[in-house]
Design a protein around this nucleic acid. Structure first.
Lengths: 123, 123
DNA sequence: GATTGTGTTCTACAAATGTAGAAATAAATT
DNA sequence: AATTTATTTCTACATTTGTAGAACACAATC
C-alpha cells in the first residue's frame, strides 16, 4: 500500500508535528489552503490504508502517524534501488555521490560518517 | 510531468534495451504479459509526456527513451531529498548510510569514491 | 439558549491510471 | 492472392486520486 502525492504531502506535515488536529494541519499548508473537507477525505483515506490513526479528544481528533518516516522513507529508497540499480545499494551510493551536488564539507562529513560506521563494525 | 507506475516500469525496460519494438517490450514482461493494446496505450501516453519517441522502420516503430535514466533518477532523488530532508543532500546522505545495509566492502568503496571526489575538487 | 467555529460524514465529480476489446492496416508468409 | 502476424488507433470502463459542497454535530462563546 502506498500514499498518493497529496496524501504523502499531508503525511509530511504530520510527521513534522508528530501529532495534530485537523486545524493545525490545514494551517500548515501554504495558501491557497485546501478545503477542510479535502483534508478530511485524505485523512480518512490514510486511515483506511493504515498510515494514520487518532485519539478522540472531546469532540475532535488528534491524528498521529502509524508509520515512521524512517520506515516509509527506507521503503521508498529501497524501491528506487531495486528499480534503478538492480538491487545494488552500492551502485546507488556511487551514483548518488556523483550525481547530487554535495559540497566539500558535506563530502567530508559523509566520509567521517562512513569511517565511524567502519570502526563500529570492527568492534 | 511524471510517469505513472505502469509507465515507469515500461520505461525501465526501454532503458535496459536502449531501443525496442513493441514486441520486444512485451516479451520482456513476466507472465502474465499485458495485452499489446495496453502497452500501445502506455507508449502513446509516454509520447504525449515526451518521455519516448520512435523511428518508423517499415511499418512498425522502434521506440527509444527521450529522457536519460540518470536524469530521471536524479529528479526522483532530489524530490525525495526535498520532501524528506528539507533539501539537505547531506542529511540525506547521512540517513542513507545509516539506514540502508551497505556491506563493509561497499562502505569502503564508497569512501574511496568520496576521496576521489575530494581530490578532484582540490585541483 | 442562539450563534459561531470546527470537524465529520456523505456525496460528487473531473482527471489520471491500468487495462484491454474491436477494428483497421500493412508486412510477411504460404 | 489469401492468410497470418505485428502493430496501431479508437473507444471503453473500472479504479484511484484530487478536490470540495451540503448537511449535520457539538462545543465554546455571546
Amino acid at each position: 500500500m502506498t500514499l498518493s502525492n497529496a496524501e504523502e504531502q499531508l503525511m509530511q506535515l504530520l510527521w513534522k508535528k508528530e501529532k495534530a488536529f485537523m486545524k493545525d494541519l490545514i494551517d500548515a499548508y501554504p495558501d491557497p489552503k485546501p478545503a477542510t473537507t479535502t483534508i478530511a477525505t485524505l485523512l480518512k483515506r490514510m486511515q483506511d490504508k493504515n498510515f494514520v490513526d487518532y485519539v478522540q479528544y472531546g469532540r475532535s481528533r488528534e491524528y498521529f502517524p502509524l508509520v515512521k518516516k524512517k520506515v516509509y522513507f527506507s521503503k521508498q529508497v529501497n524501491g528506487m534501488i531495486k528499480n534503478f540499480f538492480n538491487d545494488s545499494a552500492a551502485q546507488f551510493a556511487s551514483f548518488f555521490t556523483k550525481e547530487t551536488d554535495l559540497s566539500q564539507e558535506e563530502l567530508e562529513d559523509l566520509k567521517k560518517l562512513i569511517d565511524q560506521r567502519l570502526k563500529e563494525e570492527r568492534k
